[in-house]
Amino acid sequence: MTQHRLRDGFGYGVVATIAMSVLMLMALISGLSPMPQPVPKAVVEQLFSAGLPKPAMMALAIGLHLGYGGLIGAVLARIARPVTLLKGLALGVGLWAMMQVTFLPFLGWGLFGMAITPKIAVATLVLHLVYGGVLGWALDHDTSSTGRTSPTTTD
């Protein structure tokens, strides 16, 4: 059961990451995003400077973002029993807060993105609520789509 829980959590974590990423990209393309670039891309650029060609940099950013989202989904599925929409949203808020005080200052954007604009804090909160909401909802409703025992209940 634990293996199924981890696999499902990882898979739904990737799906939730894709959902938040699509929204982020739509906002960037439309000009509505207050962020100068996607955070995963900015982090990879900060870590590797100009050491990687742009296609490799984008592939690494996408891979790391999806992998991180999947890993966090697996962790939630493993430790929270049962996983609910509310727990997913709480996870999203926790991840958002961690991002505000670690990744954004690392990028030079300041705490909560304040070095650029406070709108970054709001935009990234919405994105993380989408991630947590999709993840929590998917794991909570997994039994209805598969007809098997929920991967997020007890062993």
Rank of each mutant, 00 (worst) to 15 (best):
residue 52 L to Y: 12
residue 89 L to C: 05
residue 58 M to C: 00
residue 55 P to R: 03
residue 91 L to T: 15
residue 90 A to F: 13
residue 73 G to P: 11
residue 88 G to E: 10
residue 75 V to W: 13
residue 54 K to I: 10
residue 69 G to W: 08
residue 79 I to L: 06
residue 81 R to K: 11
residue 69 G to S: 06
residue 94 G to R: 07
residue 79 I to V: 13
residue 55 P to W: 09
residue 84 T to H: 04
residue 49 S to P: 00
residue 64 L to W: 12
residue 93 V to L: 14
residue 75 V to K: 01
residue 100 Q to E: 15
residue 59 A to N: 03
residue 49 S to V: 02
residue 99 M to C: 05
residue 101 V to W: 12
residue 75 V to Q: 01
residue 94 G to D: 07
residue 63 G to N: 06
residue 64 L to F: 13
residue 75 V to M: 11
residue 64 L to A: 09
residue 68 Y to T: 07
residue 51 G to E: 04
residue 74 A to I: 04
residue 91 L to F: 15
residue 60 L to Y: 06
residue 73 G to E: 11
residue 100 Q to Y: 02
residue 80 A to I: 07
residue 64 L to V: 14
residue 78 R to A: 13
residue 67 G to I: 10
residue 94 G to M: 12
residue 53 P to L: 05
residue 79 I to A: 00
residue 101 V to T: 10
residue 90 A to R: 10
residue 88 G to Q: 05
residue 51 G to Q: 11
residue 55 P to K: 03
residue 66 L to P: 05
residue 71 L to W: 14
residue 47 L to A: 13
residue 57 M to Y: 00
residue 75 V to P: 02
residue 65 H to E: 02
residue 68 Y to L: 10
residue 91 L to R: 12
residue 65 H to I: 03
residue 65 H to N: 09
residue 99 M to E: 14
residue 69 G to N: 08
residue 71 L to E: 03
residue 84 T to N: 03
residue 76 L to A: 09
residue 66 L to K: 01
residue 90 A to V: 15
residue 59 A to V: 11
residue 67 G to K: 05
residue 76 L to I: 06
residue 69 G to R: 08
residue 52 L to H: 09
residue 74 A to E: 11
residue 80 A to L: 01
residue 55 P to V: 04
residue 49 S to A: 14
residue 65 H to W: 06
residue 104 L to F: 14
residue 94 G to S: 10
residue 54 K to A: 13
residue 56 A to E: 14
residue 47 L to E: 07
residue 73 G to N: 07
residue 68 Y to K: 00
residue 78 R to M: 05
residue 69 G to M: 06
residue 61 A to N: 02
residue 62 I to P: 00
residue 59 A to T: 09
residue 89 L to R: 04
residue 53 P to F: 05
residue 102 T to L: 06
residue 64 L to E: 04
residue 96 W to T: 12
residue 75 V to D: 05
residue 88 G to F: 10
residue 78 R to F: 09
residue 70 G to Q: 04
residue 92 G to Y: 12
residue 74 A to Y: 09
residue 64 L to M: 13
residue 56 A to R: 01
residue 60 L to C: 03
residue 96 W to N: 10
residue 76 L to D: 08
